[in-house]
């Protein structure tokens, strides 16, 4: 590991000023991803600015009934919070589906959004990787890509974003608040992650040195009946090979409102707008759920070894929406 300086930030302004003054500095939250990547040399910061003890660890109801979640709230506290479980059970479930109890106690909301891909080539500094070393190539396309992207990838990178939490946040139009030396700013989560294109090393639209301070979920009554379902290669403590965050409101057997987002299929949480459009006004049955999944997955461009994900995602969408429709009928 490269040697580095360490400073514990006293307040948000101070943290942002430290980053602004030092291009080699990085924020340290829970460190569960950053410290791991520093050990392997993927990340080589010259200084860490520790933001974990900043007073950004609250979860508050907003005036309109949404939730404002501080950036240093741990994954554990987010998942256990009664208002999160009441207003958006899919968010609690998504967080609980990720990592282990120990890691969720350490990991923060801001860090979860900014964690790096678990692509094996990205993690191995002896291999080429366009995300880690622009222009060096992407061995995953010809190599090990069983768990890589089927949507929105490019010939330069097919890595997936590993977060479960971000998938649920994406389904409910979360907004990310941040602070820079020039002042505060906001980005819809939908615009946080940049398209892969030929610049997979540029992952987010955050300005340089920005510190995520909070994530706000606008009020969405449909979120009260929501679920997160994750498929992985072992029963627990593994990254997704596919996941769905969904919410459904049915009236007289017809879909009135629906939210759908996919995980582990793209470089970002994938909001399934095409599927949502196909569903609103349709009968809430398996046939129409499958047709909606197909509408979204028509854009899929799988590689030889991850074509299974197209079927997997279709089946997941049908299963989750069927569960939600049955719950609505009770």
């Amino acid at each position: 590991m490269r040697e580095f300086g360490y400073r514990r930030a006293d307040d948000v302004t101070g943290a942002v000023a430290l980053l602004d003054a030092d291009p080699g500095a990085r924020y340290l939250g829970g460190g569960t991803n950053l410290v791991d990547l520093m050990k392997t040399g993927v990340e080589r910061p010259a200084r860490l600015v520790d933001i974990r003890r900043l007073p950004l660890d609250g979860i508050e109801l907003t005036d309109d009934g949404g939730l404002r979640i501080g950036a240093t709230v741990t994954n554990s506290d987010l998942a256990a919070h009664p208002e999160v479980r009441r207003r958006c059970p899919a968010l609690s479930q998504a967080v609980l589906a990720g990592a282990s109890g120990q890691l969720r106690n350490m990991a923060t909301v801001g860090g979860n959004l900014l964690q790096r891909t678990r692509c094996g080539y990205f993690a191995d500094v002896t291999k080429p990787c366009n995300k880690r070393e622009p222009g060096s190539g992407c061995p995953a396309i010809e190599g090990e890509h069983r768990n890589h992207a089927i949507l929105g990838a490019s010939e330069h990178c097919v890595a997936v974003h590993p977060s479960d939490m971000a998938v649920a946040l994406s389904a409910f139009d979360a907004v990310v608040s941040y602070q820079t030396a020039d002042g505060p700013g906001e980005l819809p989560l939908a615009d946080l992650y940049l398209p892969v294109s030929d610049t997979p090393h540029r992952e987010t639209a955050l300005p340089r040195g920005a510190l995520i301070t909070a994530v706000t979920l606008p009020a969405a009554p449909v979120a009260a009946r929501s679920r997160y379902r994750k498929v992985r290669e072992r029963a627990s403590y593994a990254f997704a090979i596919g996941s769905v965050a969904a919410a459904l409101e049915v009236h007289d057997g017809v879909v009135r409102d629906v939210r759908l987002a996919f995980g582990a299929v793209a470089s970002r949480p994938w909001r399934a707008h095409a599927a949502e459009r196909a569903l609103v006004g349709s009968p809430a049955d398996a046939e129409h759920f499958a047709a909606a999944a197909d509408a979204e997955l028509a854009a899929a461009r799988p590689l030889p070894d991850n074509a299974y994900k197209v079927t997997l995602m279709r089946n997941l969408v049908v299963a989750v929406l069927t569960d939600l429709a049955q719950e609505a009928a009770r």
């Binding site: 360490y6 741990t74 109890g101 120990q102 350490m106």
Partner: peptide, 18 residues
């Protein structure tokens, strides 16, 4: 695994200084 302020934590990913 150790407890930090009562919360179970992975000591291998926890920088001591933090």
């Amino acid at each position: 695994t150790v407890l930090v302020d009562g919360r179970r934590t992975l000591a291998c990913l926890q920088l001591a200084v933090a």
